[in-house]
Amino acid sequence: MIRHLAGAVALALVIATPAFAQNQKVRVGVEGNYPPFSSIAPDGKLQGFDIDIANAICAEMKADCTLVQQEWDGMIPALNAKKFDMIVASMTITDERKKAVDFSDPYYDVPSRFIAKEGAFKDHSPASLKGKKIIVLRNSPRAKFIAENYKDSEVLLADKETNVYLELAAGRGDVALGSAVVSGEAFLKKPEGKGYAQLGPSIRIGAGSGVGIALRKDDAELRQKVNAALKAIRANGTYKKLADKYFDFDVSEGI
């Protein structure tokens, strides 16, 4: 009797397995401190454009995805250590990062902008910010841009993009350089951002490169699938629907 039962269970497993195997398991690294791209909702759930894009791509690829939250500066090492299989964390495609990881096609591109107390400076030229303290996200293309172009200014490097604006509001620096979108969502549109405004026109750092999904170099198969899925969600309108939820301008312009 027991034998028959065991046989039946084994048979059931054999039949059932192919159905499970169809869905590839993919772990996605996300960040959670970059609203409206990635943040933690009051109920503890991850939310934002990055999160929606990750889920849409997974649905398109018919993959079972698990989101893994990871601190920004451990992101690429964790990918290469196989803690997850791709990074959907608003990561700008740069030549340096390309040495360590591969990128999908870009999935959005937004400019950067300076934020300061209203009327504090006349523009954001290196000359008018001379001797002032500029706050910027540590280990980011923007930090590199400041280090290279604003040599006569002081720099305060914050750990997280959201902390950039906390430091600015606290008066620990004179001007912040942040994402044109995040600075609005996390700061200017909030009560804390009262009295602060964008300084000068927005700028593009590493123009045209955009933000991509990072994958391990040996994972060309997943990269192809991700690119195909990106193309599909842009073609079928899913991308636009998601983007319209968060932005009042076209974040896919120029990619």
């Binding site: 500066d73 451990g74 690429i76 090492p77 540590r138 305060l156 490097l157 914050a158 750990d159 430091e167």
Partner: peptide, 22 residues
């Protein structure tokens, strides 16, 4: 290191980030 001071753990985190080598 969490409040922008660059002590040895922060140095390690920066090297980890830049060279990706734990």
């Amino acid at each position: 290191s969490t409040v922008t001071l660059v002590e040895i753990t922060r140095v390690a985190r920066d090297i980890y980030y830049n060279h990706l080598s734990p």
